[in-house]
Amino acid sequence: MEHKRRILYLRATSMPGAGTRVLSHWLNWLDRNDHEVFVAAPKGGWLTEKMSGLKRKKNLNAEFYIPKAKDYPRFLVLVTRLCFFVLRNKIEIIHCNSDIAYFTACTVARITRRPVVTHLRFHYEESFYSWLFGSWRKPDLVILVSKSFRDEEVKKIHAVVPDTPVKVLHNCIDISEYPEPDAEQQWRSDYAFYPAAIAERKRQLQLYRLNQLLQQNDADLRLVAAGQAKDEKYWQLCNEEANKHPDNKVEFVGHLSDVAAMYRGAFVSLTLSEYETFGYSVLESMASGVPVVGYRIDAVEEVLGESVYLVDLDDTEALADPMIKLRQEQEQWKEYSRRIRQRAEEFFSPDYLCPKLLDMYTDVVLRRSKPADGNDQHQGRSK
């Protein structure tokens, strides 16, 4: 009989970023497969709404932060509540989905003698890992979201915690949330969609040059950028560039609550980022069957599985070519759309990835059950 793992997930935000969306897919899959679901996260928000339909959930309202001296009384209350939650529900593993919650996760893990798993989605300096994983805060497992990301980070992590496993688990997506595209309608769509927070590494300024190149080639496409301004100085540069080109067809529409609807109507999706650790918008495009055009970087190639319609980073002059080609060749558009949607369903679905996650948990439990040289192998946890 299959053992049903009892995992507590810690999440510092309930807002619908990539990490929260992936967690919601995990929780839905676990619930469908008769696992109990345990979550500690802030009350309310998108994640709470998504969890409302789960049959076997237990959640704890928790606000996570990195405590300072003045916060210790409040922090001790949070830790006490979580410890009782872990013990009462016989939690086996604490899985932390946020660096902000990691200090709390490690404190609870040490007190309750549970293993702790951390899931990272951002680049950090080695000095940050020294702080995050220092002293008694050594994780039992580090999960990274792509092979290319692991290649970049593993040496820095192992410089701090040399014997901690560092594994890869891709982000997942539920393709049923993205209806199959109407190929005829989308191929004739009048806009390309670029969903990304407005920041220098996301390269929104290059949309204006791309717009000029498309107009010169009689490709009548609007370039619709969705996302919040994370970098106010860069946002100001975008506004200044817009004023230089009053006839441009670049539109910034801010944060969208229904991103899936924009994908459904788009001719192509753009990815212009300087770097990504995964590229969740690329996966959303694939699930929507929207052809991806953009810059060739390792994580995007890994997720997309090909680079036919990608060009070298910052080669804006070449970026218009694949868009024009897809506009002229409807059958190529349809085949690309079919191919990437199938890849999303086969290799990024919860059914494909969640069993791999459960296997990782089993490895953690087995590893903790084998003492090293007669001592507790987890640093800082004396018998």
Rank of each mutant, 00 (worst) to 15 (best):
L205Q: 02
M51I: 07
L60R: 02
H25E: 14
Q212E: 15
E49C: 05
E177A: 15
K147V: 07
L141Y: 09
S24R: 00
D163Q: 10
Y295S: 07
P115F: 03
F128G: 07
G17L: 08
L132I: 11
A229C: 06
F133A: 10
A41N: 02
K55M: 07
A199F: 06
Y65N: 04
R222Y: 15
K138E: 14
S382M: 14
F252K: 03
R21L: 13
C106H: 02
P139W: 00
A105K: 03
E284Y: 02
D231T: 05
V282K: 00
K155L: 13
Y263E: 04
L310N: 07
A372M: 07
K244D: 07
E153I: 05
D99F: 07
G45A: 10
R21S: 03
L366A: 13
L310Y: 09
L87D: 12
Y361M: 01
A372E: 15
Q215R: 08
F64E: 01
H245K: 08
H123C: 12
R11L: 08
D220K: 14
V303F: 13
G374R: 06
L353Y: 07
R137Y: 08
D190W: 03
E177R: 10
D71W: 06
S257P: 09
E63D: 11
Y129E: 12
E63I: 13
R341T: 05
A62T: 05
R137C: 07
A41Q: 01
H255G: 11
A69I: 15
T118E: 03
A62N: 01
P115R: 04
F85I: 04
L207S: 05
H245Y: 11
D71P: 03
M323W: 03
L8Y: 04
V166C: 08
D321C: 04
D34A: 12
I91V: 10
R222G: 04
A183Q: 10
F103V: 06
V22D: 03
E200N: 07
D321P: 01
A196F: 04
W26P: 00
V145N: 06
